[in-house]
Amino acid sequence: MISLFLRDLKLSMRAGGGALIGVLFFMTVVAVVPFAVGPDLNLLSRIGPAILWIGALLASLLGLDRLFQAEREDGSLDLMLMQETPLVLTVLVKCLAHWTATGLPLVIAAPLLGLFMNMSEVAIGATMLTLLVGTPAITFIGATGAAVAVTLPRGGLLVSILVLPLAIPVLIFGVSAAYAAVQDPAPFLPPLLILIAITLFFAVIGPLAAALALRSASD
């Protein structure tokens, strides 16, 4: 299993891998916002956590469609389906590797972009924390979409459309936890705990559903 994790990580680092592209997309999306809403620093610092979350959400959807499609195209998926190792576990490890390669860089880049949005230190820290615990949920639920769309020739856009509605709870609690950290009356912990719960829930449901979809998509 560790070998699968390392292999997927290596693949996303090598030429043509998506690791760098995701962060770049994230930075570009966030950098575009001030052009649209104007360079008012107060406004930017107010909407900053939300913008970072939306940017991270879109960026983590970016490479998801290739999660299983690349494996299917070269026949690796066939072999993964045949093994004694439960397919659920294989999917889970692939998700973790995908998140480490694309999600974790987003979390690390978030403070830098937080400075661009003129966010306070507390807001930056809170947003980073919520992204850290929230983005894996997007990957897990995205794996289901990727598995469903695996046989489609141009599934990329479809995966995003399928996954976005499911990721809305993650967005809601991620953003509300980030805001709770800066706006005083709202408590920070409850939304954060709910966010962790959502991630753990999706960590179970996502791979299960993805494994089921992959089994039935095999032809």
Partner: peptide
């Protein structure tokens, strides 16, 4: 299937590695 090797039309090898 767990006792089988399957060598299909595709090689199941990554070009980048």
């Amino acid at each position: 299937r767990e006792l089988c090797h399957y060598l299909g039309h595709r090689n199941a090898m990554k070009h980048e590695l």
